[in-house]
């Protein structure tokens, strides 16, 4: 979607056109969910938070100035929502639910992760186990380190986009990313350490 198309849809959405807002949100829904799921580590929470983020964006659409891209503006809202949720969870203690749990759909359970049909089951099981360990390690990072590493490595945002999203100086983004990787290196020692 081009910038002019986004601007036109934003104008319509500001005037109360829900359909225009849905067109704006549509391309970001899946990515927003993936981001929130990786941030909070709980699939059903992530769905609720995705809805909350979109509703909050709808209410605040008039505050979208256009200086940021619509995507970074959405990620900013989603990050605030995720951090609030993590803070609340910290107070009320975690409920444990795996990202590997299947989605309960009308037609039955559906695997949440996109299936890989090119590898053998043994390899897939190992990959799933490894994914779980990596996700657990990510969840042990502080929210501010977590947001930076998830936005960069999983959502594919650039330093500049992350700086814009989190309203941080570029240097802080780089140092947080480095700190996050260093911490993950400690947490994932059995998987990354070289046998000397």
């Amino acid at each position: 979607m081009s910038n002019s198309q986004v601007s036109a849809l934003v104008q319509r959405a500001r005037g109360g056109d829900v359909e225009a807002f849905e067109q704006l949100i549509g391309p970001h829904l899946g990515r927003l969910y993936n981001y929130l799921a990786r941030m909070v580590g709980d699939p059903s929470d992530a769905e609720d938070l995705t809805q909350d983020a979109i509703l909050r964006a709808h209410r605040a659409i008039r505050s979208f100035r256009g200086g940021a891209t619509f995507q970074t503006w959405l990620y900013r809202i989603a990050t605030n929502i995720a951090v609030d949720a993590l803070r609340r969870r910290g107070r009320h203690e975690a409920k444990v639910s795996s990202l590997d749990d299947p989605v309960q759909a009308d037609q039955g359970p559906i695997a949440r992760e996109v299936p890989d049909t090119q590898h053998d089951p043994q390899e897939l099981a190992e990959t799933a186990e490894l994914s779980q360990q990596v996700q657990k390690a990510i969840e042990q990072l502080s929210p501010k380190l977590r947001a930076v590493v998830v936005l960069f490595d999983l959502q594919g945002l650039t330093y500049e986009e992350i700086a814009d999203t989190l309203r941080l100086p570029l240097g802080t983004v780089k140092s947080r990313l480095f700190n996050a990787r260093t911490r993950l290196r400690e947490l994932l020692q059995p998987y990354v350490a070289e046998v000397v």
Binding site: N34, V103, A105, D116, V192
Partner: peptide
Amino acid sequence: RVRGLVSGLPTLRPSPSLA
């Protein structure tokens, strides 16, 4: 390797009822 592990995490998809 850490970067490879994190960026190798599969994309999670929401349930069909979310949209």
